[in-house]
């Protein structure tokens, strides 16, 4: 009995250790980044890092003064919201169709497209979009980011749709529902949390993706993350401003994740619908 209690304690202790380690690995750079963004610029690169400093907003002020930060943020928002909406618009019916027909190759195909490196698409897209004069347009960016969002929506929703008992759909058919109606009136309400999760994940992944914007955007449509990438190595890197930018960029995904963390877990574990 003592042995069991001891083992229990050990396991709990190991669990805690594991959490702390994971926390440190994940949190340390974040904390460092956030703290640095509030340091006077000469202290940012000081070694060893200063722990005690008088916080200042000078980096944030410099960021907004020297760069069109807000318009970059707006670009990011337009591209991310647009591509997420596009992903949902096509991903929801696509996932439902795959679940309904049990023909799975289209879903596999989108997954393969998502797993391929982005550079694979970049060259043909660049040539294509240039030929039709769309380089630098929001449309080109939103379309390209749909490659990120569509597979996420499909693959998060597919198991949710699969989890709905077939007979519920059949009952709706017998009640006089067309397949489209079944999607909107029966299936979609039952996977609402899955839709929310897929939307948030799509938003975050699209927000964080910089490769397409790096090449397909122009000065007016550059997204935040692509712009931040340009800060590095532009003559003397402004580390302080960069930290401030990184902090602001990381904010929306973190806030979103925090707001819906409970949904996120239940949506990802894909609780089947129990009648």
């Amino acid at each position: 009995m003592n042995d069991a209690a001891n083992t229990d304690r050990w396991i709990r202790w190991l669990n805690t250790l594991q959490l702390v380690l994971a926390g440190v690995v994940i949190m340390a750079p974040t904390v460092w980044m956030v703290l640095s963004s509030f340091k006077p610029s000469f202290e940012v690169t000081a070694y060893p890092p200063t722990m005690i400093f008088s916080p200042t907003l000078e980096n944030y002020v410099a960021l907004t003064k020297t760069t069109p930060f807000l318009s970059y943020a707006l670009n990011s928002l337009i591209v991310t919201v647009g591509s997420t909406a596009l992903g949902l618009l096509f991903g929801i019916p696509a996932a439902f169709a795959v679940s309904w027909t049990r023909i799975s190759w289209p879903a596999i195909l989108t997954l393969a497209a998502r797993m391929a490196p982005g550079t694979l698409f970049l060259l043909p897209w660049y040539v294509m979009f240039r030929q039709i004069g769309m380089i630098g347009s929001y449309t080109a960016l939103i379309l390209s980011h749909a490659v990120i969002t569509l597979p996420i929506v499909i693959w998060v929703l597919l198991p949710s749709f699969d989890g709905i008992p077939r007979s519920v759909f059949e009952a709706a058919q017998v009640d006089g529902c067309s397949v489209t109606r079944i999607l909107w009136r029966i299936a979609l309400p039952l996977v609402a949390s899955g839709v929310a999760v897929s939307a948030i994940l799509a938003f975050v992944f699209s927000w964080n993706y910089f490769l397409f914007a790096l090449v397909l955007s122009n000065g007016d449509t550059k997204t935040l993350i692509a712009a931040a990438f340009n800060f590095i190595g532009e003559g003397s890197t402004q580390w302080g401003a960069l930290m401030a930018a990184a902090t602001l960029i990381a904010l929306p995904p973190l806030v979103l994740a925090a707001l819906v963390q409970r949904w996120l877990v239940s949506g990802l574990t894909l609780g089947a619908v129990k009648g």
Binding site: P165, V168, E170, V174, D175, I186, L190, G275
Partner: peptide, 18 residues
């Protein structure tokens, strides 16, 4: 099925959960 105007009661009831 939707156009046959038939009502069916399923073994597992198949009620709309929402």
């Amino acid at each position: 099925a939707a156009r046959r105007d038939i009502a069916m009661v399923f073994q597992d009831y198949a009620l709309y959960p929402h």
